[in-house]
Design a protein around this nucleic acid. Structure first.
Length: 513
RNA sequence: GGGGCCAUGGUCUAGGGGACUAGGACGCCUGGUUUUCAGCCAGGAGGACGGGGGUUCGAAUCCCCCUGGCCCUACCA
C-alpha cells in the first residue's frame, strides 16, 4: 500500500475542501475532469478512470467535468466521441459540465479553444520560456539516427533551435517555414510534487527535453492543452492513469512558467492483461462497448470497475453505487498495477444477474433474443408472455445476458440442434419406445399441463416401467431440448407447452429405429 | 540505454513494527442438495509476503542494494 502516512494523504485529498470552508464559500470546491481523446472506441481502462473521477466528485459533492481532447487531427475518429459519451451514460456517470450540457467554462472541446493555447504559447515565447522550432520531421529523425549511431543511449531533442538568434528566427519566419513551439525546459534543478496515490516524487529537469507544446498545424499537444484547461477550468484534482507520471516534469514546469498553482495529482494504477502487459485487444474484450454488447449489467460493471485499484478496506466486494460513493477515497487506491480478471468480472456479472427480478431480467434479455433472431422485433402478446416464462428458467446460469441466447434457443426454434452423443447414450435402452409411447398417451390426456401434474404422470410411467427415474428424465430432456443440460425438466415441459412437447416426443420416436 | 512506477497464493486484495499459525474474494478441488447443468450450502488444497543485507527484543510492515515486471522516452494522448 501507499507509503505516505494515511493522515497526510487524507489531508492532501481534502485540501481544497478545507480551503473552501475557511473561505466560507458556499460552492463545492472539488472539480475533477475526465478528458478522453476521441481516437477510437473507449478502452475499459479509460472508462475506469472516468468512473474514479466521477465517484470522487460525487463523494465530495464536487463537479465532474468532461472535456474532449480532440487535438490530434490525424487520429481523430468522428464516431468515438459519441461512443465515449454513450458509455458514460450507460454506466450512469453523469457530467455537470461538458459536451451537450455546456457549462461556465465552455467550450469543452479543445479543438474549439485553439486561440487560447496559441495565445499562451506565444506569450511564453515572448517571455523566453518557449521558442519556435523549425526542424522538420526528417531533420529530427536524422538527428536521432545520428545520436544512436554515436552510441548515445538517450535520444533527446538537441535544442538546436533554442540557440537560434532573433535574426535567424526572423529569417526563417519570413521564408514561411513552418514551425512548432517548444517549451524551454530548465537545464537544471528538480521539480517535485506529492502524488495523492504514490506520495512524494522528484524529477530532474535536465532529463526531460524541450517538448513540443504547439504543433505546426496550430493545435496544442496534450501537455499544453491539459495544463491550460485544467487551470482555466479550475480543476482541483487531476485523477488519471499512471502512464502520465513521467510527464509530470513537463506539466509542473509549465505551471511554474505560467505562474499557476498546479492542482493535486493522483495517478491510478494501470490496467494490465493476464500476461502483465498493458491491457489490449490481445486480452479479449477491452473496448467498453464490447462489454455492453456482451451483456454486462451497468451495476456490475460499475462495481467491478470501482474495484480495479480501489477497495473499501473491509472484505466487501459487492457494493452498490451509494456505498462506493460513500466509502471512496484516494487513500485507499492501490499503487500497484491491476491485472484485469475477466473471470472475476464474469462471476460478478452473474451475481448481479441473479439478483434481478424476473421483470428486470426479461427486460434486459429480450433485446439479445431479438438480436439473435429468436424473437421478432415486434412482439405480440403471446410471444412476449412465452418469452417471459422462458427467460427466468435460466437466470441462475447466465454470466452475461448474451448467454440467454444459447441457453434458451430451443424454446424458440422449431428445428432442434440435437446432441448426437446424448441420443446415442439414452436412446439405445430397450424401454425407450415403450416409454415414449406411454408418455405421449398420458401427456395428451393431461389437463392442466402443469409441472406438478406432469411430474405426477411422469413418475407413474417411471414406476410402471420399473427403471431408475433418470432413465426417463434424461431421454425426455434430450427429446424436447436436444441436449443434456437445461432447466428443471417438469417446469421446462410446462413452459414449452403440450403441443411442442408432443411434437418433439414424436420426433424422438424416430431415433429409436 | 535513461527516467519513473510497482513487487503478499494462479489472479485481485487486507495488512501502516508485536493482535499473522498472514485474513477475504475470484478460480481450482471435495462433499451435500437435485432429474442434468447452474445455483446454493459445507469443507479443502494453495503463500516461508521477489532475493540479499541492515535497523529492532521483535519486520510482510522501516532503510539500503539487487532482481524482475510495467510505463514513459512522438509535431499520440
Amino acid at each position: 500500500m501507499p507509503k505516505r502516512p494515511q493522515k497526510e494523504r487524507r489531508a492532501l485529498e481534502c485540501f481544497y475542501r478545507v480551503k473552501s470552508c475557511v473561505d466560507g464559500e458556499v460552492r463545492s470546491m472539488v472539480r475533477v475532469r475526465y478528458a478522453p481523446s476521441p481516437t477510437g472506441s473507449p478502452h475499459v481502462g479509460n472508462i475506469r478512470t472516468a468512473l474514479f473521477n466521477w465517484v470522487f466528485a460525487r463523494h465530495h459533492q464536487g463537479k465532474f467535468i468532461v472535456r474532449i481532447e480532440d487535438t490530434d487531427r490525424s487520429r481523430y475518429v468522428p464516431t468515438s466521441e459519441q461512443e465515449i459519451l454513450t458509455s458514460l451514460c450507460w454506466l450512469g456517470l453523469d457530467w455537470d459540465e461538458g459536451p451537450e450540457v455546456g457549462g461556465p467554462y465552455a467550450p469543452y472541446h479543445q479543438s474549439q479553444r485553439l486561440e487560447i493555447y496559441q495565445r499562451i504559447a506565444h506569450q511564453l515565447v515572448e517571455e523566453g520560456k518557449a521558442y519556435k522550432c523549425f526542424c522538420t520531421p526528417e531533420e529530427l529523425e536524422q538527428m536521432r539516427a545520428q545520436q544512436r549511431a554515436q552510441g548515445a543511449s538517450v535520444t533527446m531533442y538537441d535544442r538546436r533551435c533554442r540557440r537560434l538568434t532573433p535574426a535567424e528566427v526572423r529569417a526563417r519566419e519570413e521564408a514561411g517555414l513552418p514551425y512548432v513551439i517548444r517549451f524551454a525546459m530548465p537545464l537544471e534543478g528538480t521539480v517535485e510534487y506529492e502524488d495523492l496515490i504514490h506520495g512524494h516524487t522528484v524529477f530532474r529537469n535536465a532529463l526531460t527535453d524541450d517538448f513540443v507544446m504547439l504543433k505546426s498545424d496550430g493545435y496544442p499537444t496534450y501537455h499544453l492543452a491539459n495544463v491550460v484547461d485544467d487551470h482555466l477550468m479550475e480543476i482541483t484534482h487531476v485523477i488519471r492513469g499512471d502512464e502520465w507520471i513521467s510527464s509530470m516534469p513537463r506539466h509542473l514546469n509549465l505551471y511554474r512558467a505560467l505562474g499557476w498553482e498546479p492542482p493535486q495529482f493522483a495517478h491510478l494504477p494501470l490496467l494490465l492483461g493476464p500476461d502483465r502487459q498493458k491491457l489490449s485487444k490481445r486480452h479479449g474484450a477491452v473496448q467498453f462497448t464490447e462489454f455492453i454488447r456482451e451483456g454486462y449489467l451497468p451495476d456490475a460493471m460499475f462495481n467491478f470497475l470501482a474495484l480495479c485499484g480501489w477497495n473499501p478496506g473491509d472484505n466487501r466486494e459487492i457494493l452498490n453505487r451509494e456505498e462506493i460513493i460513500e466509502l471512496f477515497s484516494l487513500e485507499r487506491v492501490s499503487d500497484n498495477p491491476f491485472i484485469f480478471d475477466h473471470n472475476k468480472l464474469l462471476w460478478m456479472n452473474g451475481y448481479y444477474i441473479r439478483q434481478l427480478s424476473k421483470e428486470q431480467l426479461v427486460a434486459w434479455c429480450l433485446p439479445f433474443l431479438q438480436e439473435a433472431g429468436l424473437l421478432p422485433k415486434e412482439l405480440d402478446e403471446d410471444t412476449r408472455a412465452y418469452a417471459e416464462r422462458v427467460i427466468p428458467l435460466e437466470q441462475e446460469k447466465m454470466k452475461v445476458l448474451k448467454d440467454v441466447v444459447t441457453l434458451t434457443d430451443f424454446f424458440f426454434k422449431e428445428d432442434l440442434a440435437v446432441d448426437q452423443n446424448a441420443v446415442k447414450k439414452w436412446y439405445s435402452m430397450p424401454h425407450i419406445p415403450q416409454m415414449l409411447e406411454e408418455l405421449i398417451r398420458r401427456y395428451e390426456a393431461l389437463e392442466p399441463f402443469t409441472a406438478p401434474e406432469i411430474e405426477r404422470v411422469t413418475r407413474e410411467v417411471i414406476a410402471w416401467l420399473g427403471v431408475p427415474s433418470g432413465h426417463v428424465i434424461h431421454p425426455v430432456r434430450v427429446a424436447v431440448s436436444g441436449r443434456t443440460t437445461g432447466p428443471s425438466l417438469f417446469e421446462m415441459l410446462e413452459v414449452l407447452g403440450k403441443p411442442r412437447v408432443l411434437k418433439r416426443l414424436r420426433q424422438a420416436q424416430q431415433w429409436t429405429v
